[in-house]
Each structure stands twice: as C-alpha cells, then as structure tokens.
Simulated assay, not measured.
Amino acid sequence: MDLPVMPPVKPMLAKSVARIPPDMHYEAKWDGFRAIVFRDGAEVEIGSRTGKPLTRYFPELVEALRERLPERCVMDGEIVIAREGRLDFDALTERIHPADSRVRMLAEKTPASFVAFDLLALADESLLDVPLGDRRALLVMALSGVTAPVHVAPATTDREVAQRWFEQYEGAGLDGVIAKPLTQPYLQDERAMFKIKHERTADVVVAGYRFHKSGPIVGSLLLGLYDDGGTLQHVGVSAAFPMKRRAELVEELEPLRMEDVEQHPWAAWADEAAHETARLPGAPSRWSSKKDLSWVPVRPERVAEVAYDHMENGVRFRHTARFRRWRPDRTAESCTYGQLEEPVGYDLAEIFGPQD
C-alpha cells in the first residue's frame, strides 16, 4: 500500500457543547465504530480510532469497500450495524471476537455498513490541508451513485435542519449532531469539531460502588432501576468525580455498606449463568476479562439524579451517566424504568433515502 496519507491516522475529534453553533457544516452523530478506511487498488485496510486495525472483524465490509470506493483513497467515517430500522451497537461489539469462524458467521447474520463523512486523500493527493467545504464536495463527487452498504453521511449548512435532525434521528439510534467549521483543515487527534448530544436525567438507586485504581476511594457508583416485576436491574455507572469528592462519597455511603453481599439484590453477580436472566454488575465479556470487577455492596436505599444521553436497547445507559445530585425526597422503589423518556421511532431508510 502506497498512499499520500498512510496508516495509522488518528481521527479528528469533537468536544461537547450545549447547543448547535451557528454557521457551520452539520452532520448526524453516528453511534458506531469510528474508522479510517485506506484503499489502494485491491488492498483495503480499516483503522480504528486508536489506530489499531479493524480489517479482520468486517470481511463483508472489506469486499464492499473494495468494490465501491475510488481506486486510491483514504476516508473517515463510521462502521454501523442496523437492525429493524435503527442502529444496534450491541451487534457491533459482538464482531470484535478472536474466532474467525464466529466473525464470518456474524458477517452474514448482521452485516455492517460504512458511513463516509470525510475524504483525507484521493488518488495521489493528500487532502489533510484542504478546507472541509472542499473535502466534502470531493467526497460527494467520489461517491456519487454509491450503493449500500456504503453511504455518504447526510450533511447540511442549515442550522434549523440540523436542529430537526437532532430531534428526529435519535429514534433511529443516532447520537446527536456534529458541527464542523467549513474552512478547517483535517486536524488529526485534535478536538476541533463540536458534538451536541442528547441529555436527559433520571433518578436511580445507588446499590454499590467500585474502588478507584488509586486507592480506597470511589471509582464508580453502581446504578439500578426497578423493572415491572420489582427486580432491581443494574443499568450502568457514574464515574466522573474530582478526587476529593471520591473520598467524600465513601464516607457518605459508609452507613449503607453491607458486609455480606448475600442479602443484596445483586448477590448472584459472580454467577455467569445469572446474567442470562438479570442485569447484574460485573457481567463477563471480552472487554472486561482482565479487569477487577469486584464491588462494595450498599443497601439500595439512596437515590441519585444522573444525566444520560440515551438507553441501549431500553435497558441500560449507553454511556457513563453523569452524577448531578442526591435526591433525599425520592424513595428507591420509585426509581423505575417508567420514568425514562423514549425517543420517537425513526427509520434509518428515511435518513439515507432510497438506495439499491
């Protein structure tokens, strides 16, 4: 492979802002794996956000990219998997598996797509120093008439349209809106774009915590919600605290600390089979196999308000929740899934439009 922009490339990043800024280029924020695709003739490589190769995990996509991309190019985009008209991040994570046979089975069962939103090189020319507006025009031209599973990310310079996307597209599993300055070159590994993500709040039960890697202070709070059957389900964690606050949390939760996990609703957390019927902390996975998943149980009586962007499959927080405050006015039993706001459904086909 001999391209004007060679792997590894660290993608340009975004910083969070509260509102959609004016006078920019706007795209939907895709909830998938960020990927830099390199094609030089028959050779295709897919690099992850960290620069590690993703190529072997998406064999069906490699073939599609070889057939549909320009002969020599480098593109920035997102690998996604869609099910029933919306993005499915869980299906995407299942593809990162050491067994080639399983990867190929899943490639047939849940094929991936590539959504291109930037062009970093074309033929023998690097476009890293070219303004975004010009790169976008070249991208649209290079992928004119492209067919699924390769897509060009819809974009607009109309802020009102971007606001409408922000409100509608969540129903298809998208994650918000990205805003990019039109005159900006491609700045590797710099937070030079802006992301506007959905944020909601929920009252949750704090049912335990894990220690911080630096010592006996809180690393993360374990959060729960009651389902319709009255079972406390683990829905995620809240982990971003100043060091002083981490120590304070240990003291605040000490009166609720349980010496024996056997009386806790999540007593079966270490039993792998129990995870098949309940959501418990410490679920085994290929992502966490080497991590210390032990935790300190506390009586599930304390209620906290947390902010979150959206739910994964309606059962857990997709990302780490952000602690807002304690809610002494709420009872633990009142913290149910029923309080959560559900986005209005929206079909991915409406975003991409008709495509062969």
Rank of each mutant, 00 (worst) to 15 (best):
residue 266 W to E: 04
residue 209 Y to G: 09
residue 221 L to P: 00
residue 331 T to W: 12
residue 341 E to H: 12
residue 25 H to F: 08
residue 86 R to E: 13
residue 302 R to W: 15
residue 16 S to M: 12
residue 41 G to W: 00
residue 221 L to F: 05
residue 7 P to V: 10
residue 5 V to N: 03
residue 88 D to H: 14
residue 151 H to E: 15
residue 200 R to K: 15
residue 99 A to K: 09
residue 27 E to F: 05
residue 135 R to D: 07
residue 30 W to I: 06
residue 321 A to I: 15
residue 153 A to W: 10
residue 260 D to A: 02
residue 111 P to Q: 10
residue 252 E to K: 01
residue 161 V to W: 15
residue 150 V to D: 08
residue 356 D to K: 08
residue 185 P to T: 03
residue 295 W to S: 00
residue 26 Y to G: 09
residue 266 W to C: 02
residue 91 A to N: 15
residue 118 D to M: 09
residue 337 Y to N: 05
residue 250 V to S: 01
residue 88 D to A: 15
residue 276 E to D: 13
residue 237 V to H: 04
residue 51 G to N: 03
residue 249 L to N: 06
residue 70 P to G: 05
residue 102 R to M: 04
residue 323 F to G: 06
residue 330 R to G: 12
residue 261 V to W: 02
residue 275 H to A: 15
residue 130 V to I: 09
residue 51 G to C: 10
residue 294 S to K: 06
residue 310 H to N: 11
residue 126 S to V: 00
residue 355 Q to F: 12
residue 153 A to T: 12
residue 164 R to Y: 08
residue 63 E to H: 04
residue 260 D to E: 00
residue 289 S to D: 12
residue 35 A to K: 08
residue 30 W to D: 04
residue 48 S to W: 03
residue 167 E to D: 03
residue 326 W to I: 00
residue 21 P to C: 05
residue 313 N to W: 14
residue 224 G to Q: 08
residue 44 V to L: 05
residue 275 H to I: 10
residue 295 W to F: 01
residue 238 S to M: 12
residue 332 A to S: 02
residue 337 Y to S: 08
residue 67 E to V: 13
residue 235 V to A: 01
residue 32 G to H: 04
residue 306 V to W: 05
residue 68 R to A: 05
residue 33 F to Q: 01
residue 76 D to H: 06
residue 273 A to W: 10
residue 267 A to T: 03
residue 98 P to A: 14
residue 217 I to C: 09
residue 306 V to G: 03
residue 60 E to C: 04
residue 273 A to N: 07
residue 291 K to T: 06
residue 146 V to N: 02
residue 128 L to T: 04
residue 152 V to Q: 06
residue 342 E to H: 15
residue 195 K to F: 11
residue 111 P to H: 12
residue 327 R to G: 05
residue 301 E to S: 05
residue 30 W to G: 01
residue 218 V to M: 00
residue 306 V to M: 11
residue 62 V to Y: 15
residue 285 S to P: 01
residue 250 V to A: 04
residue 113 S to E: 00
residue 294 S to E: 02
residue 169 Y to V: 11
residue 67 E to M: 07
residue 72 R to E: 03
residue 78 E to Q: 10
residue 221 L to Q: 05
